[in-house]
Computed example of a mutant assay.
Amino acid sequence: MGFTDMQFTLAVEPFDPGSDGTFLLNTLMWCVTAAGIAGIIIIGTLMALQLHRGEIGEKAQLMRGLFFVLLACVVATSAGPIISFLGPFTL
């Protein structure tokens, strides 16, 4: 019996995390939303403090921080729909 006579079959089943994976994605989505809201509130507070002190020149740095907070929120909240669009988790 040679190597060419042997037949190999691989039993590959798609990985389905079930309700645990959905729960994890939902929990992460809520945590990212809460962190994004906290980041926007913190940046708004810093802008108000600088306006009160008369330091107007630092707005560019705060706007950069606001941009990164909003960008992180968009990327993190779009992870769930992207994963659901790709279908089941197959390895």
Rank of each mutant, 00 (worst) to 15 (best):
L91G: 07
P81W: 01
G80K: 15
G54C: 02
L51D: 14
H52F: 09
Q61C: 07
F8R: 10
L62Q: 01
I43E: 02
Q61R: 08
A35W: 07
F68Y: 04
I40E: 15
G21L: 09
V75N: 03
L66G: 06
V74S: 15
L51N: 13
P17G: 09
A79S: 09
L28R: 13
L70P: 09
E58F: 09
T22I: 14
C31T: 13
V69D: 09
I43N: 03
F15L: 09
G44W: 09
L51A: 10
D16M: 00
G87F: 00
G18Y: 04
D5F: 01
Q50Y: 12
H52K: 01
D5H: 14
M47T: 01
D16A: 04
A34I: 04
G36N: 05
T90H: 12
V12A: 08
G65Q: 10
M6I: 07
V69N: 12
T27N: 03
A38N: 10
M29V: 10
G18H: 06
E55A: 08
V69I: 12
G54T: 11
M63E: 01
P17L: 01
A35S: 07
W30E: 14
L70A: 06
I42A: 07
L24Y: 12
R64N: 07
G65H: 03
S84W: 11
A79K: 00
I37G: 00
L86A: 14
L86D: 12
A35I: 01
A60R: 15
L66K: 02
T22D: 08
A60M: 02
T77P: 00
S78H: 05
C31D: 11
L91P: 11
A34E: 13
V74W: 13
I42N: 11
A11P: 10
T90R: 15
T4C: 10
